[in-house]
């Protein structure tokens, strides 16, 4: 009897980690790396929508909408900027006038950063495709060189770039998407 009980307990204890890992994915323990088949879940299974609501089942599923769009490694797993550039999507710039186009400004701002990370290149071009100047200036960024103090800590708390990046635009885990201009050798070696 005792041996049988031990066996049952052993089987149960082995089942627990399997159930937690939801399969054989070796990365399933890492909350930041959900396995690909759990991404873009349909509303009824996403844990936020109420499956008991009739409306939940009438909504479009993200998988269906994203199927023709270029992929990325984080966020919605959609490369939204490329999707727009390659006209996979043609979102309106004006609520009522489908012919209105944004005024795109092609100006890169380079921000030299402390530490050994590559400098940040901020492309106005990609941002003005989506946004109006007044979305960022002057409330979030003063449009003047050297007037804006920034830090990753504040960005991760939702300030500055973090108003969008880390909420809707690609997340801050994509370090090299912003920190994209390598420093010259001497600077990097000096740790500056």
């Amino acid at each position: 009897m005792f041996r049988f009980a031990s066996l049952v307990v052993a089987v149960l204890l082995l089942t627990v980690p399997l159930a937690q890992g939801q399969g054989n994915d070796p990365l399933s323990f890492n909350r930041l790396m959900p396995s690909p088949d759990t991404r873009n879940a349909p509303p009824a299974e996403d844990g936020i929508h109420d499956a008991a609501s009739e409306g939940t089942h009438m909504l479009q599923t993200p998988r269906e909408a994203f199927q023709p769009l270029p992929e990325s490694n984080a966020g919605n797993y959609v490369d939204w900027v490329t999707a727009l550039q390659e006209e996979h999507i043609t979102p309106r710039f004006d609520l009522n006038d489908p012919t209105r186009r944004p005024t795109v400004m092609d100006l890169n701002i380079v921000r030299e950063v402390k530490g050994s990370m590559p400098d940040v290149v901020f492309p106005h071009k990609e941002h003005t495709e989506w946004l109006d100047c007044s979305n960022c200036h002057p409330a979030i960024f003063i449009p003047q060189r050297g007037a804006n103090q920034m830090s990753m800590a504040e960005i991760m708390l939702g300030e500055q770039c973090g108003a969008c990046h880390g909420r809707v635009a690609f997340p801050v885990t994509d370090c090299r998407a912003c920190h994209s201009r390598p420093k010259d050798g001497a600077q990097a070696a000096g740790g500056q």
């Binding site: 909408a65 959609v78 999507i89 979102p91 309106r92 944004p102 989506w130 946004l131 007044s134 809707v168």
Partner: peptide, 14 residues
Amino acid sequence: WFHRIRFRCKVCHG
């Protein structure tokens, strides 16, 4: 995601 396929950020946030 559903809304940004149809409208750019500026429409709602501006």
